[in-house]
Amino acid sequence: MRIDVYLPLLLSLLLASVSRPAARHLAPGQAARALTLAAVVTAGATTWTLALLALTLLGDAPQVVADAREDGRALPAPVPEAVAVLALAVLAGVVLRVLRAARTARTTHRTLRRLCEGHPPGTELVVAASPRPQAFAVPGRPGRIVVTSAMLAALRPDERRVLLAHERAHLSHRHALLVGAVTLAAAANPLLVPVRRAVAYLVERWADEQAATAVGDRDITARALARAALVAHRPGCALNFSDRAVTRRVAALQTAPPPRVPLLAAAILALGALPALGAADATGDLVQLVHGLLV
């Protein structure tokens, strides 16, 4: 348990380090799915290992110590007590961060759904009168696309087709679930924040590629993205733009679509599975330890 219990934390750093290269070299959909699944498994493993470390404090419980002394047995120390106390404090922080992230996501979703109230059930597009150019997909049943009048006015007809195809891709591929899952994973394990950023970028690239396929022209898609970025007054309001992200996305559309590389995707998934194996091995060690105390 001395080594295995720390393995998920070390592998979290490795997963974070490969997330950006994966975003550059893999097909967006493939990379987004693989990174999200790996991050969720890794976050679960690291959270469980923190719980295992905290559980070692039970060996210092007064009744356990008294029983051991009566039987003339020495209590093993799987980890230093200071490490176990620190793990307990970190675990409490994990719970608070995950609850806060879940509450924020729920509040945001409710706010967005309220914007769509009053429209017929079959309405996909909701146009909001606003001087701020914005466009975003609102997941749910049914999914909606909210676009402001300023954004529509800023784009040409063919560019509007790109915008709508982009947002439809978010809905049809359930990108909100991927982003939500990796956001909770990063809340549980802050070492995975680079993975969360990579997935957020990848779902936008994924939607870009879907839009380019739908309109049949990568140049028009790139032009629509660039124009939307120019009319946006703040980061993230139009098609989730930021200065660096929009440059990378436009450049990507001016080249051939990235290939699907199953072996690399499998390697990312394997990297996510290794923390789970380490946590399982540490759990077995703890079970044996507890069994030795009870026998």
Results as ranks from 00 to 15, higher is better:
residue 131 P to H: 09
residue 76 P to H: 03
residue 95 V to W: 15
residue 134 Q to W: 03
residue 153 A to K: 05
residue 142 P to E: 07
residue 171 L to Q: 03
residue 167 E to A: 15
residue 34 A to L: 11
residue 258 P to E: 13
residue 143 G to C: 14
residue 172 S to Y: 14
residue 242 S to F: 02
residue 205 R to E: 11
residue 60 D to K: 10
residue 102 A to S: 11
residue 97 R to T: 01
residue 75 L to V: 15
residue 181 A to Y: 10
residue 285 D to F: 09
residue 94 V to E: 00
residue 12 S to F: 11
residue 116 C to Y: 04
residue 184 L to A: 11
residue 91 L to F: 13
residue 110 R to T: 08
residue 49 T to R: 00
residue 179 V to F: 06
residue 228 A to I: 10
residue 116 C to T: 13
residue 2 R to C: 06
residue 86 L to S: 14
residue 181 A to L: 15
residue 159 E to G: 05
residue 247 T to Y: 11
residue 271 L to N: 07
residue 291 H to P: 00
residue 177 L to T: 10
residue 162 V to L: 11
residue 281 D to F: 11
residue 225 L to V: 04
residue 236 G to I: 06
residue 250 V to D: 14
residue 218 R to P: 00
residue 22 A to F: 10
residue 44 G to M: 00
residue 275 P to A: 05
residue 269 L to H: 06
residue 122 G to C: 11
residue 131 P to N: 06
residue 253 L to H: 06
residue 41 V to P: 01
residue 109 H to S: 14
residue 176 A to K: 01
residue 234 R to Y: 04
residue 288 Q to F: 02
residue 169 A to V: 14
residue 96 L to V: 13
residue 173 H to W: 04
residue 145 I to V: 11
residue 234 R to K: 05
residue 78 P to I: 09
residue 216 G to Q: 12
residue 200 A to M: 02
residue 218 R to Q: 12
residue 6 Y to M: 04
residue 227 R to S: 06
residue 111 T to C: 01
residue 155 L to V: 04
residue 128 A to L: 15
residue 41 V to E: 02
residue 182 V to Y: 10
residue 177 L to P: 02
residue 125 L to Y: 04
residue 27 A to K: 07
residue 251 A to G: 08
residue 201 Y to D: 14
residue 260 R to C: 06
residue 123 T to W: 12
residue 74 A to R: 08
residue 249 R to H: 14
residue 70 E to M: 05
residue 295 V to T: 15
residue 192 L to R: 02
residue 207 A to N: 06
residue 102 A to F: 14
residue 149 S to N: 07
residue 155 L to N: 08
residue 94 V to H: 13
residue 184 L to F: 08
residue 97 R to I: 00
residue 156 R to V: 05
residue 264 L to I: 10
residue 178 L to G: 15
residue 72 G to D: 05
residue 249 R to I: 02
residue 248 R to T: 02
residue 87 A to V: 08
residue 218 R to K: 08
residue 227 R to N: 10
residue 139 P to T: 11
residue 290 V to P: 01
residue 136 F to H: 01
residue 210 Q to A: 14
residue 144 R to F: 05
residue 185 A to K: 01
residue 39 A to G: 15
residue 179 V to P: 04
residue 288 Q to Y: 01
residue 35 L to I: 13
residue 214 A to W: 01
